[in-house]
Amino acid sequence: MQDWQPAHDGEVLWPHLDRTADGAANWMQSMLPASEATIDVLISNETRPRVFREGDGLVGVLRGINFNPGDEPEDMIVMQVWAEKTRVVTLRRRRLQTPRDVLARLQETGTGPKTAGDLAIALTRELVSKINSAIADMNDRIDELEADAADARPEDLLGEIGGIRRTCLAFKRYLSPQYEALAQLQRDPLDWMSVSNRNTIRETLDRLSRCLEDLDVPKERALVLQDDLNNRAATEMNRTMFVFSIIAAIFLPLGFVTRLLGIDVGGMPGVNSAGAFWITVLILAVIVGIEFMLFKPMKWL
Rank of each mutant, 00 (worst) to 15 (best):
V59S: 13
P6T: 11
Q2C: 14
L127D: 02
E146Q: 13
L123Q: 07
G262T: 01
N197I: 00
T38M: 12
A276Q: 06
L58Q: 04
A83Q: 15
G262P: 00
C168F: 05
G57M: 04
M237I: 02
N238W: 05
A122H: 08
R94Q: 11
I121E: 04
A147Y: 12
L225V: 07
K130A: 10
P49Y: 07
P73S: 03
I247H: 09
D22P: 15
I142L: 12
I201E: 00
V78T: 15
G64A: 04
T167K: 12
I43D: 02
P6Q: 10
V195G: 07
T86P: 06
L32K: 13
G10I: 11
L190I: 00
Q29F: 09
L294H: 09
W300S: 04
R207M: 09
L260G: 04
V88D: 04
D156G: 02
V271L: 14
N132Q: 12
G10W: 14
L91E: 06
S133G: 05
A134K: 11
R100D: 09
V281Q: 12
P73E: 07
L284E: 02
L260W: 07
D191H: 03
E108K: 08
N199D: 01
M28F: 07
R50A: 00
I43R: 06
A222D: 10
F242Q: 15
Q226C: 15
L123I: 08
A152W: 02
P49W: 06
L282I: 05
D216H: 10
V41L: 05
M241F: 03
N197Q: 05
V281F: 03
